[in-house]
Simulated scan of single mutants.
Amino acid sequence: MRRRALVAGLLAAPAIARADAAFPDRPIRLVIPWPPGGTNDIVGRLVTEGMAARLGQPVVIENRGGAGGMLGADVVAKAPPDGYTLVLGGSGSLTITSLVQARVPYDVATAFAPIGLIGLGPNVITVHPAVPARTLAELQAVARAASPPLVYASPGVGSTGHAAGAMIAQALDVPMEHIPYRGTGPALNDLLAGRVQVFTNALAPMLPAIQSGTLRAIAIAGRARSAAMPGLPTTGEQGFPQIEAATWFGLLATGGTPPGRVLRLHAALGDTLAEPEVRRRLLEGGLEVEPSASPEEFARYFAEDRARWAPVVRHAGMRVD
């Protein structure tokens, strides 16, 4: 029996190789697990343009927001493992959501096949201009005196913005109320309208409002200043080094996707990120381009990121039943 299975496997191998060599022979779907208008949308559309040209097939974007990115991720987790359905994953939609949600309909460690890291975007802490604070120390004083408490927005329960907001409240030792939205776009709209006071998010969608003065940046929540806003001090420079939150972006396929197809997609992603114009546009949007050398390297980063956020989420008591 074992010999027959081995022979069958050897006979099937050339057919599998031919199938992978022809991949892709039809359009690829990229699920962005957030509504249009946020950082994920900006990064996803920019990267897929270059990948489509290299793969010789269109990459069709599908925005599927909800549940902190879990609804869109679930679509990919349950898709056929053939490399034709991808997800633009991130620290919020895959890492933190899996730690916060009580019932996740997939095993985040096995449901996805990591393809490659795109880059990292240190979060920027912003406030509505009506908030009389320009530094973290001033924000701390305002929050302590506020009644009712200041309200911070997030792109959704379990998002990086949710965890970052909780981290800020802990570090400043102040009460703040959390209001989740269905993506960065809706949260940013309510911040600009003054319905919420604080929002921590990747820089890309915030930059135009910051530059126009309709939004005030308080600090970069990372170890280094952003090249897009070199004059904005970091949280560490302002005396709060414990506030550190970066949003990562990467591509993943359904778990079980053939390694040859994963490598094909990784190569197309890497070649796209090597384009000077793509790197320039991502950098201007506040994203530090850091492609992974291999799918395996990205897989290790993915696992380490989840281990890093687990105690933060636990300490904050972030849980959705």
Rank of each mutant, 00 (worst) to 15 (best):
R195W: 06
L11G: 01
S154Y: 03
I28M: 05
L263G: 08
G236Y: 03
R3G: 00
L287D: 05
A221P: 07
Y84N: 03
V104P: 04
P180L: 03
A193R: 14
I28V: 15
T272G: 07
P27R: 09
L269F: 03
V87R: 11
A22R: 14
T39M: 10
Y84R: 14
G236C: 05
D82R: 09
A166I: 01
S154A: 10
Y301D: 12
L94F: 10
V313A: 13
G83P: 09
A219D: 08
E244D: 15
E277S: 13
G256N: 14
P14M: 13
T234C: 08
A17M: 13
R264Q: 12
P105A: 11
R103N: 14
T39N: 14
D321N: 15
F298D: 11
A171T: 06
L136H: 09
E290C: 01
P24K: 08
S294K: 13
G121C: 05
A19R: 15
Q140T: 02
G90D: 10
T48Q: 13
Q101S: 12
R264S: 12
L71E: 13
V87P: 08
T200E: 09
L11P: 03
A141P: 02
A141S: 11
D41R: 06
M229Y: 00
L192E: 01
G231R: 00
Y301G: 02
L282M: 07
P105E: 11
I96N: 15
P129G: 11
Q242I: 06
G183D: 15
G121R: 05
P259R: 14
P148H: 06
A316K: 10
A268R: 12
R182F: 03
Q140Y: 02
G69R: 09
G158A: 07
V104G: 02
A130F: 02
R103A: 14
G89C: 04
Q238H: 06
V198L: 08
G38R: 11
Q140N: 04
V87F: 12
G222W: 00
P311F: 01
L215M: 05
A53G: 12
I168L: 15
G44V: 08
R2Y: 00
V59C: 01
T85W: 04
R2F: 01
V289A: 01
P24F: 10
L6G: 00
M176C: 12
I118N: 00
T254S: 08
A253I: 14
E290P: 02
G285Q: 11
P186M: 02
V142S: 05
R281S: 04
A17C: 10
P259M: 14
S147H: 13
I220G: 01
